[in-house]
Design a protein around this nucleic acid. Structure first.
Lengths: 150, 150
DNA sequence: TGCGATTTAATCGTGGACGATTTATTTTGC
DNA sequence: GCAAAATAAATCGTCCACGATTAAATCGCA
């Protein structure tokens, strides 16, 4: 009873990840609202700004999302006029997602967001970097375990 | 261009938190499925196993969830026969949530879950503990900023 | 005492997320 | 060259999450 067992620690860690995700989500919501974007939509935009015309699966692979999540999300973005969805002529199974002019223009409006978030953490860069690496290690561990379960 | 700016780092960090949360969520889903629980429901159960008969707001405060999230969630748990929802006789605005026998019994079936998750991380206890503290620091920073925005 | 302000849940609409399934297309194996 | 397998996206049902609003109960204060 004196020391917290590893399993309790783990429960706490999972909850911490869960609630940190909520905190990030709330922060991004307020920053992204003026652009009319949600956080997952913003992630898609980052990928497209970097490399336009990707397929649904390509985007999903990078974000870890299924087509059942992405298809409706991309349709909302299409309705908002920031992306286009078009069947690939060479392989009609694929749908390629590309930026409209409005979508491309959003890139400039999104410039300030990163620094806002960085400031909000209130932590020095080195510490954030270390945290990033530790989290990546954790996620890789979990992902390996998730794969092994199949 | 040579060094990653703090804002890019931050974007990566946020994404890392986001996807680590997904990885945890997937892992817990497979562990909790035999108990018929989702992860947020499991969090509610942990609170009730610790302290039965809490109010909706009391639970929400600890988990950072709104009544608009909890009410339907608790109704599903009630339908599943693991909790009861009852208006407080002293203050009829409050709804008290308590465990049924079946809900209490689940506690034993959930025993092994923590160690499973701890093993899945593949990381030593000390490292997990340090990560927990860093994440808490980050979350507190973000939460402070979220509050200040009001 | 009684009325306005506050507190507590519940409701509604929107958006994310997943698994299972379906449909269409392409690849492969023979 | 064609049937079977594999791949890509979409669809459906369920659940989580939030903000805004509503309804009911309680509190507080004049």
């Amino acid at each position: 009873m004196s020391e917290p067992s590893k399993s309790i620690l783990d429960q706490m860690l999972c909850f911490e990840v869960y609630s940190t995700e909520h905190a990030f989500s709330r922060l991004y919501k307020s920053l992204l609202a003026p652009l009319g974007l949600t956080y997952p939509q913003f992630l898609v935009m980052i990928l497209l700004w970097e490399n336009d015309g990707q397929t649904v699966n390509g985007i999903g692979g990078q974000l870890g999302l299924e087509s059942s999540t992405l298809t409706p999300l991309l349709k909302r973005m299409e309705r908002a006029g920031i992306v286009l969805r078009k069947r690939d002529a060479d392989d009609e199974r694929r749908v390629r997602v590309s930026l409209t002019e409005a979508g491309d223009a959003l890139r400039h409006e999104a410039k300030g967001i990163g620094t806002c978030v960085a400031d909000a953490t209130g932590m020095p860069e080195a510490e954030l970097k270390a945290l990033l690496l530790e989290l990546r290690k954790l996620r890789n561990g979990l992902a390996a375990h998730n794969l092994a379960a199949d």
